[in-house]
C-alpha cells in the first residue's frame, strides 16, 4: 500500500522533500556552525564567525576540553550525567503516568485543588525556591549527593503529568467500559488498556525528561560539592569565566559532544512516536 501511494504522488513528494530540506538547512545551520567552530582555534571562533569551516581544522579543543578540570575529565562527567538523567527519567516517566491516570480518569474529592497545586508548582521559578529547598535538603543531609536531584523526580513532574492527562483524556472511554465488563479493575484498565495507548506521550516524556535533566545545571550547582560528581551540563559552565577569560573552543567541543547522547536518545525514541493509536487502529 505504501509503495503504491508513493508512486502516485511522486511530484508532490519532490516538492515536499524540497521544502522540508530547505527548512532543515535553516534549522540546522546554527548547529552545524557550533560543531564546525569546535574545530577552530579557540581565539578564531569569534573573529572568523562568518566562515564556517576552519582554514586549519584542529582537534586541540577536544583534547583540551576532554581533560576537564583539576584532573577530573569529561569521561567522568559524562558518566555522571548518564546516571542522573537516566535514573531521573525512569522515575519521572513512570510516576507521572500513574499520577496522570488518577487525574484524567478518576473522580475524587479535592481533585481540582491538587491539580491546581501541580500547576502552581510548574509556575514557580526555581530561583525563588532554591534557597528554602537547599536549607531543607541540607537538613535532610542530602546535600553533596544525587538524592536532591533524583528523588523528587520519582513523585511525578507537573509537565509530564499534565501531558499524559491530556493524552488520556483523548482516549475513548468505551474502552474502559468494555474492560470493566470483562471484570477489569481500575488498576487493570490503567496497566492493560491505557498504558499501551499513551505510548507516544510516554516516549515524549522520556525524551524531554532525559534532555532536561541532561541540560540542567542549577540543581547540580546547588547540591553537588565534589567535582568527581559533576555532570556535563555543570562542567560546561566552567569553561567560561568573565573575570579571567574563557576557553570557548573547548566549550564548543564538549558542548558538541554532549549533544550526541540526547540526539541518540531522540533518534531511537522518535521511532516509537510513529506508531500510536493510528497504527494500532482501535475504535474500529
Amino acid at each position: 500500500m505504501r509503495y503504491g501511494s508513493k508512486r502516485k504522488r511522486q511530484i508532490a513528494s519532490v516538492v515536499y522533500h524540497a521544502a522540508a530540506i530547505a527548512g532543515a538547512v535553516i534549522m540546522v545551520y546554527p548547529v552545524v556552525w557550533m560543531i564546525a567552530s569546535s574545530f577552530k582555534d579557540s581565539d578564531l571562533i569569534i573573529r572568523t564567525a562568518t566562515q564556517l569551516i576552519a582554514d586549519v581544522p584542529t582537534l586541540e579543543n577536544y583534547v583540551v576540553g576532554w581533560k576537564g578540570f583539576a584532573g577530573y575529565d569529561f569521561g567522568m562527567f559524562f558518566k555522571n550525567s548518564f546516571v542522573i538523567a537516566g535514573i531521573s527519567t525512569v522515575g519521572a516517566v513512570i510516576s507521572s503516568a500513574i499520577v496522570a491516570f488518577g487525574f484524567a480518569r478518576c473522580e475524587f474529592r479535592f481533585k481540582g485543588f491538587w491539580f491546581a497545586c501541580m500547576l502552581v508548582a510548574m509556575m514557580l521559578p526555581f530561583q525563588i525556591i532554591m534557597i528554602p529547598q537547599y536549607i531543607m535538603f541540607n537538613r535532610l543531609g542530602w546535600v553533596g549527593s544525587y538524592l536532591p536531584i533524583i528523588v523528587p523526580q520519582f513523585f511525578g513532574q507537573g509537565f509530564f503529568i499534565f501531558l499524559n492527562v491530556q493524552f488520556i483524556r483523548g482516549l475513548p472511554r468505551d474502552l474502559d467500559e468494555a474492560a470493566k465488563m470483562d471484570g477489569c479493575s481500575v488498576y487493570g484498565i490503567f496497566v492493560r488498556i491505557v498504558l499501551p495507548l499513551i505510548k507516544p506521550s510516554l516516549v515524549t516524556s522520556a525524551i524531554f525528561s532525559f534532555m532536561w535533566k541532561w541540560d540542567d545545571f542549577l540543581s547540580p550547582l546547588l547540591y553537588l560539592n565534589d567535582p568527581k560528581t559533576y555532570p556535563v551540563s555543570y562542567a560546561l559552565k566552567m569553561f567560561s569565566d568573565p573575570t579571567v577569560g574563557s576557553d570557548w573552543g573547548a566549550m564548543f567541543a564538549m558542548a558538541s559532544l554532549s549533544l550526541i547522547p540526547i540526539f541518540l536518545i531522540f533518534l531511537t525514541m522518535q521511532k516509537y512516536l510513529v506508531e500510536g493509536i493510528a497504527s494500532t487502529g482501535i475504535k474500529g
Binding site: 578540570f69 583539576a70 532554591m130 534557597i131 537547599y134 536549607i135 541540607n138 546535600v143 545545571f217 542549577l218 550547582l221 546547588l222 560539592n225 565534589d226 567535582p227 555543570y234 559552565k237 566552567m238 567560561s240 569565566d241 568573565p242 573575570t243
Partner: peptide, 23 residues
C-alpha cells in the same frame, strides 16, 4: 583538602545557598 569550583555566577548562587544552610 576537598576542592570545589564553579563559574563566577554559579559560585555566588551556591555560596548564598550554602550560607543560608550554614555550611
Amino acid at each position: 583538602i576537598q576542592v570545589e569550583f564553579t563559574d563566577w555566577t554559579g559560585y555566588w548562587d551556591k555560596m548564598s545557598a550554602m550560607a543560608a544552610g550554614g555550611n
